[in-house]
Amino acid sequence: MQASSLHPIRFYKTVLLFALLAGILLVYYSFDPSEHAFFLPCPFHYLTGFLCPGCGSQRAIHQLLHGHIGLAYNLNPLLVLSLPFLAYGIYNKVYNYLFNTQRRISLFYSNIFIYGYTGCILFFWIFRNIRA
């Protein structure tokens, strides 16, 4: 396998994608979803009235962008606790894409982690509906 080098076209695509992401985050920074109606509600909550594991994420992102980690945790603990894994996973994805490598995160291939995480989602899903 040849030495990994930066793929120029993929680099520009990534920059464009991150600019788009920054634009979306700017909207989430500027407007609080709990005060403005133009944010899309969760389809599951909209239809059934029950909370899903992702409900509160938009409000939590708004609070996170303002540095209020505690408030974000109250809105959606699953999102806040998943952030390190998401950041690491996305970093790895982008790295593989840019340098055309095949890096793998061993944690993401561990059965214990995947079953544990799925269990957490299901437990959280049931628990937050019982509590509410």
Binding site: C42, P43, F44, C52, P53, G54, C55, S57, N76, L78, L79, S82, F85, L86, G89, I90, N92, K93, F108, Y117, I121, W125
Partner: peptide, 12 residues
């Protein structure tokens, strides 16, 4: 990653 992201951002 995408599975987790999708779950956390509400597409259960």
């Amino acid at each position: 990653v995408w599975g987790i992201l999708c779950t956390v951002l509400c597409c259960i």
